[in-house]
């Protein structure tokens, strides 16, 4: 009886543990192992025969004089710029939406539900719609910018060339701002009314209340929200894959797409794994630094 009580919680978590082992933890360890192998297409069916490569895959990936290393660095920098802009805009739109939604007014519930639709939509359905909007000849974007507002003499391409970077940001912000809106609205609801009333009695106007009460009280919510947005955006594969198809434009070559491409086009899984491990190390480092930095600031305050 006692033994059963001790064993019970372990039995309850056993299925979850087994699945996480099979799909996440074991593949991760294998991935780390693969990154040390010369794992090319010849060894796919029998990859235990692949020769040991030591750190070769890594040294090629970070050798910025080689073509592989240079394009990886380019893709990394594109991803950093893309992530900073997308997370910043998603947060900004989210906080504007959430603050303006405060209080009660007609149509609030309907508007709130409509704002959430891009988040609820399957990624591919929303992004395919955007790729229609961004078509050069038949899309809405060029119709508005060129035919109606006459901002460009010539119809620009939005899905190839330098513009594709900005298209990707717009589509990603469209998809992810409802999430920050959702989280920030929940955060706002948890701020006690007394704080606002006390601030109002002290003579604080609307803007001062926003700066002195709302934003500081949202800090713990922001800490998690920005981290989650960062990880999602940095790892985003679905949006560029659906928007551009199999070949992402050079200017919008996000890191996930880049690794996918270089793995499945060349079938060099060893080098692809090494790049994935480098990506993971980078994400772990950023997350750790971010958590330490934001927690210390919170403790000081």
């Amino acid at each position: 009886m006692r033994l059963r009580r001790v064993a019970l919680p372990y039995l309850l978590i056993l299925p979850a543990v087994l699945l996480e082992l099979l799909v996440h933890l074991v593949p991760m360890l294998i991935g780390i192992g693969m990154s040390f192998l010369k794992l090319t297409q010849f060894f796919l069916r029998n990859w235990s025969a692949a020769p040991f490569a030591g750190l070769d895959n890594y040294s090629v990936a970070v050798d910025f004089d080689s073509a592989v290393g240079r394009s990886l660095l380019h893709s990394f920098l594109v991803t950093v710029a893309f992530t900073v802009l997308t997370v910043g805009l998603s947060w900004l739109f989210g906080i504007c939406g959430a603050v303006l939604m405060q209080g009660s007014f007609r149509g609030r519930a309907v508007l709130r539900a409509l704002f959430l639709v891009p988040y609820a939509l399957p990624v591919y359905a929303g992004v395919i719609t955007w790729s229609f909007l961004l078509q050069r000849d038949s899309g809405l974007v060029n119709h508005v910018l060129v035919d109606q507002l006459h901002l460009f003499g010539e119809r620009p391409f939005w899905l190839i060339g330098a513009n594709s970077f900005w298209s990707l940001i717009v589509v990603c912000v469209w998809r992810s701002w409802p999430f920050s809106f959702l989280v920030l609205m929940a955060g706002l609801q948890n701020i006690p009314d007394d704080l606002y009333e006390a601030a109002a009695i002290d003579g604080a106007g609307w803007g001062r209340r926003l700066r002195a009460v709302t934003l500081p009280m949202l800090r713990p919510v922001n800490q998690v929200l920005v981290l989650v947005l960062f990880l999602w955006t940095f790892n985003d594969f679905n949006t560029p894959y659906v928007l551009f198809g199999k070949s992402a434009p050079h200017e919008a070559d996000l890191i996930s797409i880049h690794i996918y491409q270089s793995s499945f086009v060349t079938w060099n899984f060893g080098s692809g794994s090494a790049m994935s491990v480098l990506l993971l190390l980078f994400l772990l480092l950023v997350t750790a630094v971010y958590l330490v930095a934001t927690s210390r600031r919170r403790n000081d305050a």
């Binding site: 978590i13 979850a16 543990v17 996480e20 799909v23 996440h24 933890l25 074991v26 593949p27 991760m28 294998i30 991935g31 693969m34 796919l44 069916r45 990859w47 990880l231 940095f234 790892n235 594969f237 996930s256 690794i259 996918y260 793995s263 899984f269 692809g272 794994s273 994935s276 491990v277 990506l279 993971l280 994400l283 997350t287």
Partner: peptide, 25 residues
């Protein structure tokens, strides 16, 4: 257990894709 399970959420899908593909094959 809770921390490990939650942290798998943040790892890039591309990291599991190649090994999982190999495991399944």
């Amino acid at each position: 257990f809770s921390v490990t399970v939650l942290s798998t959420q943040m790892f890039p899908g591309i990291l599991f894709l190649l090994p999982l593909f190999m495991i399944y094959v």
